[in-house]
Structures are given as structure tokens and as C-alpha cells.
């Protein structure tokens, strides 16, 4: 995974609450067996009409929201299905960072495991960012845990130190866990056997 340290770039705005993973990546695209190539299907039913043409009224199709690496969204982003195809498609489309007032648990986890950074800010700060997005460059500094814009906003965000370290280093979680194999072996020795399957 590629490490995240400092990210400078444009933000796109999706001012909707409770965006669910069924919308982020509709189920008809879940049948692939690869991890890549989901970006073209991101928000498919919102982005395209029946003939496959871009819908002009959908936020991400508007010029000011194109080529952004940061997505600013409404509360409870990523609720619903646990499909990891949701972060895969966001990332493949170009979003490495999502800022929202709140995230659904599983979605947030899935982002972190794929080297994406979900940032929770207060509702007020998120609406400020939404209103000022278009012409702004945002700087996200994971080391300092700050979001800075070029109008004078500088705010900090929380992230669990465990995830911070993972993201900063681009580490693969499984290789870290495998270092704990002795502890897992020990645990399994003491476990009461469950009926075999």
C-alpha cells in the first residue's frame, strides 16, 4: 500500500447525508473477482442515465468536482452493506481521502485497510469546507493530523495511533499480525475445542 503523509489537492463535494454503499457501488458491479477497476462504476446509478450518458445534475459530474483527490460528504457516509468494493471504487476513481461529519463503522474500517484516510470533522467545519471547496487547495497532513485550506482554516482531526502508523508507513496489516503468531498459538492451546464442522 502506498503510504499517506501529506496530501495537497482539490476536494469534491457531495452534500448528501446517509450515502450508502449500495449507491457508492451498485450491486451489479460486485461480481468481479479482482480488486481493481471499480472506479468506472462509482456511484453508477447517480452518475449515468439509462443510456450510459453522464447525468449533468449529479455533483461529481460537475466541472468543479472533477479530478479531486478528496471527497467531502454528509453524515453517516458509507452506511449499509459491508462491501469493500465501496472504498475500492472510491480509491480507483481517485479519492484517497474522505471528509465527513460521521462514517459508518464498517466502511471506515474498510477505508483504513486500503490505505484510505477517512477524516471526521464537526458538521460546521464540513459545511464550511463544502462552501469553500471549488477554488480551494486543501492540505491534509496526517503526521500533524491537520486539515488546512488557503483561506486560513486550520483544524485538527483524530485518528487512532494504530491506524496512523499503518497509513504513514503503508503497512500491510496481515504481516504485522503474523508477528503475533506465538500469542495466537498460545491462545489456541488454551481454547476449549468447539464441535468440529
Amino acid at each position: 500500500m502506498k503510504p499517506i503523509t501529506v496530501y495537497k489537492g482539490k476536494a469534491a463535494v457531495l452534500d448528501r447525508a446517509n450515502v450508502d454503499t449500495d449507491q457508492i457501488i451498485p450491486k451489479q458491479f460486485l461480481k468481479r473477482i479482482e480488486r481493481t477497476g471499480f472506479g468506472e462504476f462509482l456511484f453508477y446509478d447517480w452518475r449515468f442515465d439509462e443510456d450510459g450518458n453522464e447525468r449533468e445534475d449529479f455533483e461529481l459530474n460537475q466541472p468543479q468536482n472533477k479530478n479531486a483527490g478528496i471527497l467531502i460528504a454528509g453524515e453517516n457516509f458509507g452506511c449499509g452493506s459491508s462491501r469493500e468494493h465501496a472504498p475500492w471504487s472510491l480509491q480507483d476513481y481517485g479519492f484517497d481521502i474522505v471528509i465527513a461529519p460521521s462514517f459508518a463503522d464498517i466502511f471506515q474500517n474498510n477505508c483504513l485497510k486500503n490505505g484510505m484516510l477517512p477524516i471526521t470533522l464537526t458538521k460546521d467545519k464540513v459545511s464550511y469546507l463544502m462552501n469553500n471547496a471549488g477554488n480551494d487547495q486543501l492540505t491534509i497532513d496526517l503526521r500533524e493530523q491537520t486539515v488546512i485550506d488557503n483561506k486560513g482554516l486550520s483544524t485538527s482531526f483524530d485518528i487512532h495511533p494504530y491506524w496512523k502508523e499503518m497509513l504513514l508507513n503503508g503497512w500491510d496489516e496481515i504481516s504485522i499480525t503474523l508477528q503475533y503468531s506465538p500469542q495466537i498459538d498460545e491462545f489456541e492451546k488454551s481454547e476449549r475445542p468447539i464441535s468440529t464442522i
Binding site: I106, N109, N110, L178, S181, E188
Partner: peptide, 20 residues
């Protein structure tokens, strides 16, 4: 609880998950 595919892989490999 439900997990994503990276966690599925993690459970395959380690039979554990890091959970808060």
C-alpha cells in the same frame, strides 16, 4: 459482525482481527 474483504483475508491468515 460483518467485515470487509481485507478483514476476510486477515481472518483467513491469522484467525484474528484487530478490533477496538
Amino acid at each position: 459482525f460483518g467485515i470487509g474483504t481485507s478483514e476476510v483475508e486477515h481472518v483467513f491468515a491469522t484467525q484474528t482481527l484487530w478490533q477496538t
